[in-house]
Design a protein around this nucleic acid. Structure first.
Length: 814
RNA sequence: GCGAAUGUGGCGAAAUUGGCAUACGCGCUAGACUUAGGAUCUAGUGGGCUCAGUCCCGUGGGGGUUCGAGUCCCCCCAUUCGCACCA
């Protein structure tokens, strides 16, 4: 027999919705707790079982925190700009807003079916003009602060999609069979690099997993070194390189410029020009991916030019090679083949000299790069010094001579912030054409925002590399309201990341027409106390959002340096076959089916019971049945088993009696365990404890009502529908959502008697039960009286006795 | 190649500060109730043996520290994730 989940669940969902049980209201006197889920892109496929994993975890925490007296903010919304809806529009002509709306309705319906306690009155949608008005407004602040600029940059152009892609989007599209080529284009960029140091430093104070912080650190990629200038025939300013190993300057036997380096033309001699040109052309045709894929084999060409090594005035040849990237450092390096693996490979291939300047390895065999043990040789005034000292001495010397300076470099690059698409936020910008021919970028006045998306005939890319917006002259052509001069609107739109950079702020004050969020509300609700989402956003979304937050902080709009205090990545849920869930494997589990067959509470409970939240784990239908059996058992514990009953009645075993000692102890141990596990997000072990409680109570003929009532509260964050129903059954008239969370009595969580293990040489020989807190001495003498111990000690010499109260006694014998 | 994480029964997984390894669930075995069971309940379930014993082995492998190691230290191996010519 199954409990009637299909009646109970919709009933309580309706109740919560009608009563607005989970509406969050600013109540400035009460402590707040802000729990945030990464809002989804509402795809046409609907929710999959991966979504509810993190959402259930946060829902449990929210329901628990409410019972703990916190004013909980727990909102949901939609990251609804994006390529799939636009691609669909290109194919079918259906406006992306239409498909987006349908998809959102599906998502919302599915989420409500799982019983999540969101405050749906705070729902946000990044494609809503009332929302993106403020995305545009924040962009204007960035621009005014000098953090947004237009640059002609080589971009990843995808002809099939008719758009450029961000570096991080390239592999995904290439995998789908699209081609991606390099092509220079006018783009909006955001100066995230200006915040590199702070984005790195402030990671320290965050309660994020170490591996996540490490990913961000690697992405930012800080490295400390020096810039050094080399004199060059034909280049007045010489060539500046960045190096982290200025201590190896004496070993620099050649230089390498990136093929795109602006000085290549100047240093190239006529004799080498043809070779250099053809190499540069070949390099330009490759995208970043192809360049790295060919990394196994080094390539390059001699320019014919020479530079002078500033430390020893030796003439060294200048090469170009695509293993040097224009986008990092200065786009030029000094090559030290003796002590850099890449340079060593290159020197070997092209027969360039390799000089040892750090002692410790064999530079004929391989590059020696050990900075811990190596000692400088063949290096004039730093001979004999280790890395650190040599580094400092050389840099001091370079600075003194004006040949170089200390420098910190970052891998992080400025953020390519425009896309040639229709379905994104329009830039609130016009390009004013002045009579003298020059163009001026002007922001739209703030009171004219939002600049909404116009209707278009066709969603197809314009084909010129511009977005479909470029095909609507009546939208593009405008006049500057200030000067009356003709102007063009910006036809690029913002990338999908823009809307998700600040949505957590809008939830705090979603209907505000005057500001993106009132300062008072931000100070109350912010920062986010707990943020849960997938690892796929470990770097980009979280870095971009932190960047915007810091800018808003600098401008005085938000009160904290960081937006997300505690962050947890839930692990992916795999298919039953252990592979990633995918249509092509046919192993996708649909939450709707699970809810239909077993109910939402079962889905929630199983998602949490599978294992630790952060771990990757496979789905298992048998396991779903297992937790469903558990919930049925809970139901039977409380409800009279009467097939003819039309209304559920309390089971006769539940009696209003004084709880016995044993039940009380079980209850209080359970309260302790479950409370601590929720705080630590260890939902799987919290559920185990509930199972232990139920297994035990199942054996009883009499179940004290007071104990059984408290258990309902413990269960409620996990299986809220069932818990509400049982709560009502026990005579309560209101929702349990705001009942105080049960407290445990520490005295009832410890046993008065403990089992002591008796060991001889570390092997368990017997056990005995003694009063808790029995002293070492008493333990030892009791152990000596034990028969089995006596027989084991016979004929042996006791060398040592270890007695640990409440644990064990161990005799060490010879 | 670099960085991070993880390796425990047939499977998902537990195990405060080092102190009875395998809680809880799945699966499996046997039984009860049943016309029936893919319902429910009870018992059992790491491996081995000279098979009920005061036995031996056992947390990826090898060493070490300790009275005592899944847990601490060193060296390997495997898997997963991230980065990948970042000078």
């Amino acid at each position: 027999m199954r409990y009637p989940f299909s009646e109970i669940e919709p009933k309580w969902q309706r109740f919560w919705e009608e009563q607005k049980t989970f509406k969050a209201v600013e109540d400035y006197g009460r402590p707040k707790y802000y729990v945030l889920d990464m809002f989804p892109y509402p795809s046409g496929a609907g929710l999959h079982v991966g979504h509810p994993e993190g959402y259930t975890a946060t829902d449990i925490v929210c329901r628990y925190k409410r019972m703990r007296g916190f004013n909980v903010l727990h909102p949901m919304g939609w990251d609804a700009f994006g390529l799939p809806a636009e691609q669909y529009a290109v194919k079918t002509g259906v406006h992306p807003a239409v498909t987006t709306k349908q998809n959102i309705e599906t998502f919302r319906r599915q989420m409500k079916m799982i019983g999540f306690s969101y405050d749906w009155d705070r729902e946000v949608n990044t494609t809503d003009p009332n929302y993106y008005k403020w995305t545009q407004w924040i962009f204007e602040q960035l621009y005014k602060k000098g953090l947004a600029y237009i640059a002609e940059v080589p971009v990843n152009w995808c002809p099939e999609l008719g758009t450029v892609l961000a570096n991080e989007e390239v592999p995904e599209q290439v995998e789908k069979g699209f081609t991606v080529v390099r092509r220079p284009m006018r783009q909006w960029m955001l100066k995230i690099t200006e915040y590199a140091e702070r984005l790195l430093e402030d990671l320290e104070e965050l309660d994020w997993t170490e591996s996540l912080k490490e990913m961000q650190r690697n992405w930012i990629g800080r490295s400390v070194g020096a810039e050094v200038r080399f004199d060059v025939d034909g280049a007045d300013d010489g060539i500046t390189v960045f190096t982290t190993r200025p201590d190896t300057l004496w070993g620099a036997t050649y230089m390498v410029l990136a093929p795109e380096h602006p000085l290549v033309d100047q240093v190239t001699t006529d004799g080498q020009r043809a070779d250099v040109e053809s190499y540069r052309e070949a390099a330009a045709k490759k995208n970043d991916l192809e360049r790295t894929e060919l990394s196994k084999e080094k390539s390059g060409v001699f320019t014919g030019g020479y530079a002078v090594n500033p430390v020893n005035n030796e003439r060294i040849p200048i090469w170009i090679a695509d293993y040097v990237l224009m986008t990092y450092g200065t786009g030029a390096i000094m090559a030290v083949p003796g002590h850099d693996e890449r340079d060593w490979e290159f020197a070997r291939k092209f027969g360039l000299p390799i000089v040892e300047v750090i002692k410790g390895g064999n530079v004929e065999e391989e590059a020696y790069t050990d900075t811990e043990h190596g000692v400088a040789v063949n290096s004039d005034f730093i001979n004999g010094l280790g890395y650190r000292k040599a580094f400092e001495k050389v840099v001091d010397w370079l600075e003194e001579k004006g040949l170089g300076r200390r420098k910190v470099n970052y891998k992080l690059r400025d953020w390519l912030f425009s896309r040639q698409r229709y379905w994104g936020e329009p830039f609130p910008v016009i390009h004013v054409k002045h009579p003298d021919g020059h163009e001026e970028v002007k922001l739209l006045p703030e009171d004219e925002l939002p600049l909404t998306l116009p209707e278009v005939e066709s969603y197809k890319p314009s084909g010129t590399g511009e977005s479909p917006l470029a095909t609507i002259p009546e939208w593009v052509e405008t006049t500057d309201p200030e000067t009356g001069l003709p102007a063009r609107r910006e036809t690029n739109t913002m990338p999908q990341w823009a809307g998700s950079c600040w949505y957590y702020l809008r939830y705090m004050d979603p209907y505000n027409d005057e500001e993106f969020c009132s300062r008072q509300k931000e100070e109350y609700w912010g920062p986010v106390d707990l943020y849960v989402g997938g690892t796929e956003h470990a770097v980009l979304h979280l870095l971009y959002a932190r960047f915007w937050h810091k800018v808003l902080y600098d401008l005085g709009y938000v009160s904290t340096k960081e937006p997300f205090l505690r962050l947890v990545n839930q692990g992916m849920i795999l298919g039953e076959d252990g592979r990633k869930m995918s249509k092509s494997f046919g192993n996708v589990i649909n939450p709707d089916d699970v809810i239909r067959d077993y109910g939402a509470d079962t889905l929630r409970l199983f998602e949490m019971f599978m294992g630790p939240l952060e771990q990757v784990k496979p789905w298992n239908t048998k396991g779903v049945e297992g937790v469903h059996r558990f919930l049925n058992r809970v139901w039977r514990l409380y409800v009279k088993d009467d097939p003819d009953a039309t209304v559920a009645e309390l089971d006769a075993t539940i009696q209003d009696v004084e709880p016995d000692e044993e039940s009380l102890k079980l209850l209080h141990r359970s309260i302790k365990k479950i409370t601590e596990d929720i705080e630590g997000l260890r939902f799987n072990t919290a559920i185990s404890q509930m199972m232990i409680f139920v297994n035990e109570m199942n054996k009883r003929d009499v179940r004290p009502k007071a104990v059984m009532e408290i258990f309902v509260l413990l269960l409620s964050p996990f299986a809220p529908h069932l818990a509400e129903e049982l709560w009502r059954l026990m005579g309560n008239t209101n929702t349990l959502a705001y009942e105080p969370w049960p407290e445990y009595d520490p005295a009832l969580t410890v046993e008065d008697e403990v089992e002591i293990v008796l060991q001889v040489n570390g092997k368990v020989r017997d056990k005995m039960t003694v009063a808790k807190g029995t002293s070492r001495e008493d333990l030892e003498s009791a152990a000596r009286d034990n028969e089995r111990i006596q027989s084991n000690l016979e004929g042996k010499t006791v060398v040592k006795v270890i007695a640990v109260p409440d644990k064990l006694v161990n005799f060490v014998v010879r």
